[in-house]
């Protein structure tokens, strides 16, 4: 019983922490982009206010699938979160293999896609169609990278992959396999839907795509989902390429560095058309990833 309560507490703690950190990161990103554009920018805590406001607003729903989609999206990422080692915090991370995490993330995507398309707004459908297409673009190089890593270190658990880089920072995959880290970084940008890979949410073209019908708490939940997703993706990158960390603080710091870089990188580019984005992913990142994989397996 105590065990159970401890576990539930742990669940909640991790969820709250990741959400808070994710929102903070989003605020930092807005600030950074503003500074790059020579603006002052909103305060760093702006996303918290946004979430608070959104949960305070009225909301409409388009039927049970709309509700279910939102719950599935948030639930999916929270479930995924528990499988990721966050510094010294690892709840189920010993069990979680990296492939599992990739597919668990899809639960959230599917939930969001289903809910938003369930609204009946064609712009949501267009957004989802673009998002899924782009996903095919970036997941492929990423999975090839995972293939190489798993094959190289003979383990598929994230924890194991992290441990394999222990010792000197020169063991980090960032330095051991810099090309791979670079590819993964590009993939990360695609995963997080930052420019130039943000055609699926193009606000002025398709009314922000998937979230076109989400207002009030639905948008709030999707914001929370987004913030946790950011943490998951960053944590994955840090664990796989930056050797993870012993404690949550240095882990968060590493995530922050990656996040800032990704944000800066993302703010420099215009938007790719969808098929051009996919083509790009299949040309450079995938090509490099395959070369790297060939190098590792031979």
């Amino acid at each position: 019983m105590i065990d159970l309560i401890y576990k539930i507490g742990h669940f909640l703690l991790i969820t709250v922490f990741a959400t808070a950190l994710g929102l903070l990161f989003m605020g930092i990103a807005r600030k950074i982009i503003a500074r790059i554009q020579k603006r002052y920018g909103p305060p760093v805590y702006q996303p918290y206010l946004d979430v608070l406001k959104l949960f305070g607003k009225d909301a409409i729903t388009h039927g049970f699938i709309f509700d279910f989609g939102a719950v599935m999206a948030l639930g999916g990422v929270i479930a995924t979160l528990f499988f990721i080692p966050l510094g010294s915090w690892q709840l189920y991370s010993m069990e979680g293999t990296v492939l599992l995490v990739i597919y668990l993330l899809a639960v959230a995507s599917l939930g969001m896609a289903m809910g938003t398309v369930g609204s009946g707004n064609p712009q949501a459908s267009i957004g989802i169609s673009r998002a899924l297409t782009q996903m095919l673009g970036y997941e492929l190089p990423f999975l090839v990278i995972l293939f190489s890593l798993i094959f190289r270190y003979q383990t598929s658990s994230i924890w194991g992959l992290m441990q394999a880089q222990a010792g000197s920072f020169l063991n980090w995959n960032l330095f051991a396999y810099p090309m791979m880290a670079l590819v993964a970084f590009v993939v990360l940008i695609g995963m997080m839907g930052k420019k130039p890979f943000d055609a699926m949410i193009a606000p002025s073209e398709i009314g922000s795509g998937p979230v076109v019908e989400s207002g009030g708490k639905y948008l709030g939940m999707l914001l929370l989902q987004k913030s946790i997703t950011i943490i998951i993706e960053l944590a994955l990158y840090v664990n796989l390429f930056l050797g993870g960390a012993d404690n949550i603080f240095s882990f968060s710091f590493k995530m922050l560095i990656v996040w800032i870089l990704a944000t800066m990188f993302g703010s420099l580019f215009p938007r790719f058309r969808i098929e051009d984005g996919v083509k790009f992913f299949w040309k450079w990142p995938l090509g490099i990833a395959i070369l790297q994989a060939l190098y590792i397996i031979i």
Binding site: A34, R39, G41, L49, P203, S204, G207, V212, G215
Partner: peptide
Amino acid sequence: SRFGIGPAAT
């Protein structure tokens, strides 16, 4: 945006 005012899409 420094006052927390930003555009919305829909």
